[in-house]
């Protein structure tokens, strides 16, 4: 079953950078879908379109549809706030808010006006367990989040995106600044999270793409070159451009 269906989607920024042309892509539920390719290919742009974060940028035009459970989220009538609550996002650099660890997590509830203390307390623990951070921070939840290490901060960001139990998680090179051990922890968490969530990942390397992908989509200069089952695409790509990228000839 497809959670998200992207149909003939095109987007263009006012300054002409990083646009996407005629993208068609099915993102299956409860799988990890990887969007990979050289920088500037439009992967992040696609991620930011799925939660309409691109609304903040100078977008010149969008065409086509992005169907989320069959509803076109590019429609003007869509409640964007509600959409974003259903779609968690983790960014390349760990961005912890200038609050305590706990408030970083509960901030989403704060925005939504949720005050149920029991629910909040349970959610804090669950999300930290899911992101493999609970044991490290359970005794210091009221310390400033900035006091955590880079790897811990990024896992906190993952936990923060999970706390309101979204349906989809978008990750934009979430491990690009992390050491190998932290990277592994994040990757392992993602594999576990697949049971409950649909995950879309922009990996920071081809190797990570190959390690993690259930479905993989290769983007080059604003175009979707090919889509395949993860293992197949990386061992036996159909397009020569994909093959040469995977082999490290460019990018």
């Amino acid at each position: 079953m497809d959670k998200i269906v992207i149909e003939d989607f095109s987007i263009e920024y006012s300054d002409g950078t990083e646009s996407l042309r005629h993208i068609n892509l099915h993102i299956p539920a409860n799988q990890l879908t990887v969007l990979f390719g050289p920088a500037g290919g439009g992967k992040s742009t696609l991620l930011r379109s799925i939660n309409r974060l691109n609304d903040l940028a100078d977008v010149k035009s969008t065409k086509g549809q992005i169907l989320f459970d069959g509803i076109n989220i590019l429609d003007k009538k869509v409640d964007v706030i509600n959409l974003r609550r259903k779609v968690g996002m983790v960014f390349a650099r760990p961005v912890v808010l200038p609050f305590s660890i706990r408030r970083n997590l509960t901030y989403g509830f704060e925005l939504a006006g949720v005050r149920d203390a029991v629910l909040i307390e349970e959610s804090v623990e669950r999300s930290l367990v899911q992101s493999a951070l609970w044991d490290e921070v359970k005794d210091r939840l009221d310390e400033p989040a900035i006091s955590l290490s880079g790897g811990q901060q990024q896992r906190l960001c993952l936990a923060r995106s999970l706390i309101q139990q979204p349906e989809v998680i978008l990750l934009d090179e979430p491990t690009s600044g992390l050491d190998p051990i932290s990277t592994l922890k994040v990757e392992n968490s993602l594999q576990d999270l697949k049971q409950d969530y649909t995950i879309v990942l922009v990996p920071h390397s081809v190797q990570q793409a190959a390690r993690t992908a259930d479905t993989a989509a290769f983007f080059l200069q604003g175009e979707l070159i090919e889509v395949g089952i993860g293992a197949e695409l990386f061992t036996n790509p159909t397009e020569s451009r994909t093959q040469r990228y995977i082999e490290g000839r460019y990018g």
Binding site: N51, L53, L56, I81, N82, R84, R85, G88, M89, F91, R93, V95, L97, P98, Y107, G108, L111, A112, C157, R160, S161, Q164
Partner: peptide
């Protein structure tokens, strides 16, 4: 930092 704003919006903030 602009990133604070982006994160807040991405979490469903107005």
């Amino acid at each position: 930092p602009q990133s604070f704003r982006v994160v807040s919006i991405s979490l469903g903030g107005t």
